[in-house]
Design a protein around this nucleic acid. Structure first.
Lengths: 131, 131
DNA sequence: GAACGATATAACCAACTCGTTATGAAACAA
DNA sequence: TTGTTTCATAACGAGTTGGTTATATCGTTC
């Protein structure tokens, strides 16, 4: 029995999470919720789409574990679930060497690359292909 | 003259990036490329899908800026573009307070579990409604 | 109970995604 | 030239997504 109340690294979860984050409306909803819980109506207000559309976006976010919902009278306040984002952070950790390198010294790096570009190419070696 | 051939922070880019990452095959391709450049054929080998399917995955990844492609004879070696992942990292930074908190808690929890393994302290088990 | 306010669901449509097979194009090799 | 290898593209179908409008459900209030 796999007691998974916490999201683990199952690819499915990651699929759903990335897919949920791929929509700008949904990311905007998360941004809104980062400032505090909000009801569906409050969330829907700034968007140019219908309320049912927002309801479905919320459902997608909830299915991905990115938000949770309470129940206060007829309202269903939404709450950002930061835990789920950790999934993404963890996944990115695997590639830290790749994106971190480009972090602070992007310009410097680009200069270097541009300077040594042809040298790199003519050196034949390149980086091989690992394995 | 900083020819911006690399990705900016336009939401569109983020859409494409998250969408590209939402597919497990594509993430696996990135994992493969993290170990070194590879040709399309090499990339396709371990997957149970057709070569055209891989070609399209690569196209999606390239459109998102996650990979780039060279040209060596008839081969088109693919290269992981870590820079693009920085987009995601930057986006996640906005929510650091949310996932980082969960991070520490998880560490703490793991420590407890490891320390007392079977001695299950009534840690309060705050997991909301989970799934 | 009747009406209202907040949210979810149903039914539908257009567009996109991911897979397939078949075929085309480019670079090499004989 | 002819053939082979590597990769891309075309054409198609099934399933998913994101939007709509109309309606149902639930809780409050009169």
């Amino acid at each position: 029995m796999k007691q998974a109340s916490y999201a683990l690294d199952e690819p499915e979860r990651l699929d759903a999470t990335f897919a949920a984050l791929a929509d700008p409306t949904r990311r905007a909803i998360l941004a809104r919720l980062a400032q505090g819980d909000a009801t569906v109506k409050e969330i829907a207000a700034p968007f140019p789409v219908s309320q049912p559309a927002i309801s479905r976006h919320l459902k997608v976010l909830e299915s991905a574990g990115l938000i949770s919902r309470g129940r206060v009278a007829q309202r269903r306040p939404c709450h950002l679930e930061g835990r789920q984002l950790r999934l993404v952070v963890d996944w990115l950790e695997n590639y830290r060497g790749y994106w971190a390198e480009a972090y602070g010294r992007l310009d410097e790096l680009l200069d270097e690359l541009q300077a040594g570009d042809d040298a790199r190419q003519s050196s034949g070696g390149r980086e091989g292909q690992g394995t």
